[in-house]
Design a protein around this nucleic acid. Structure first.
Lengths: 73, 73
DNA sequence: GTGTGACTACCAGTCCGTG
DNA sequence: ACACGGACTGGTAGTCACA
């Protein structure tokens, strides 16, 4: 697959930024998304590789379009 | 997690559209991405739930920004 | 050139906990 | 409120033969 490494790290950092802008804690955000709190933590730290469905859910939880989650790069 | 519906189908359709606009066959596209042809097929048909890393590779193969892969919706 | 079912190894995602 | 760990289950990555 040979990847494009820090995509997870950059994605996670961006998610964190958007979450903080929404004034949500990781826990509140996780609840809103219906995901596990530790999983959100992992995503933001760049150690998780979320699927399309999860990315979609994250966008929903942040109340933004998916494309906005990729407004870095 | 409760599924946010046909996000996969819509994503796949959009990938297909972008691929055709690039004049690539599934095979050529798969080669360019370093992925299997049948895997691309699955994504375009909406039966696969690709991860962030795969999505990143797809964007690279199409030579577009990731956010452009979500320009639907 | 593409759709599809089946397959194994590995990871996505959950749940328990700690500091 | 968050980082980080271990253990677990189901789903995804990646590939094949065949239509």
């Amino acid at each position: 697959m040979i990847n494009t490494f820090s995509i997870q790290a950059r994605f996670g950092a961006h998610i964190k930024k958007l979450r903080l802008q929404s004034g949500l804690s990781q826990e509140a955000f996780a609840d809103k998304c219906g995901l596990d709190r530790t999983y959100i933590s992992g995503i933001e730290r760049g150690v998780r590789n979320p699927t399309l469905q999860v990315i979609s859910v994250l966008a929903g939880g942040l109340e933004v379009k998916i494309s906005m989650l990729f407004d870095f790069k």
